[in-house]
Amino acid sequence: MTLADGAYSIWAPGAGTYVLIASVAHRDPQVATLAVGSRPLDFNVRLAGSSRLAGTVRDQEGKPVPGAVLALTDARGEVVATSTTDADGAYAFSGVAPGAYTLAVSAGSHRPAAVPTEVTATGRTRCDVELRPGTRIRGTVRVRDGLPLTDARVTLLDAAGNVVGTTITGDDGAYAFADLTGGQYTVIATGYPPVADTVTVNGADEEGRDLWLAHEE
């Protein structure tokens, strides 16, 4: 039997080859072949959990979300396993120790989600996740003659005035903010005297929100 700190000590009758078997409830047993000589042998054993966590990631319409990235974190916030969903939106974690976890899921064009789950001691725990769509606002910053403006700073504020994101336009003057929830936003472009535009998002992408900058006449 191991001690409270997991330490163990076994006396071998003599030099030779032995089979060490370590087992405990709710974890997969481990078997190791050891060659014992005239000196003490240090050998650490790691026992993985025998439980399994599985489920499906779907969107709000019930369609599977393939390629979603999943991270399983324990109560201390440490990542214990990662995975991605298959073509059917399914995922599975094997060898999970019983306990409380948080399953974080992210996928393109969707809002990330973090779902608490409790993995049982035996068998399989199921945790299905629904991802909400992430709305996008994008457009082009232009000067008065219609040419795109490079290196313009574009800031997105939510209805409370909090900064949601900031970006710099490229050679095409384009900007974009993705994975947004519904609500009212304010887009501010600077580089010349700043301009602002209010946008209300209702679940659909906002395209062509062009901003026009120019020096004051």
Results as ranks from 00 to 15, higher is better:
T85L: 07
L103M: 05
G99R: 15
A114I: 01
A114C: 03
V36P: 06
G123L: 00
G62Y: 00
V80N: 11
Y101N: 06
G134E: 03
G37C: 01
Y91T: 03
V69L: 12
S109A: 13
V96T: 04
A87P: 08
D59F: 00
Q60N: 06
R111E: 06
A114M: 02
N44Q: 06
R58M: 09
P112S: 13
R39V: 06
A113T: 09
T33S: 06
F93K: 13
A71W: 15
S94H: 05
L72R: 03
D42A: 13
A87T: 14
S94T: 15
T125K: 00
D59N: 11
S50V: 04
A68G: 04
G134M: 01
F43M: 11
S50Y: 00
A104L: 05
V65W: 12
Y101W: 02
F93I: 14
V65G: 05
A32G: 05
V36F: 01
S38L: 08
S106V: 12
P29L: 02
G134H: 03
G134L: 11
G134C: 05
A97F: 07
D128H: 04
L70M: 04
R126F: 09
Y101V: 01
F43L: 15
V36G: 01
G62K: 10
A35C: 08
K63H: 13
G123Y: 03
R76N: 13
R132T: 11
T82R: 11
E61R: 15
D86K: 12
A100G: 06
E130P: 03
N44H: 12
G99M: 11
A107V: 00
L103K: 10
L34D: 01
Q30Y: 07
G49H: 11
S83K: 10
A113Y: 10
G62I: 02
V129Y: 08
T120G: 07
A121K: 10
G37I: 01
D59Q: 02
V115Q: 02
S109R: 13
D86A: 08
P40K: 06
D74P: 04
S51R: 14
K63F: 12
G89F: 05
A100S: 12
D74G: 12
A87F: 03
G55V: 12
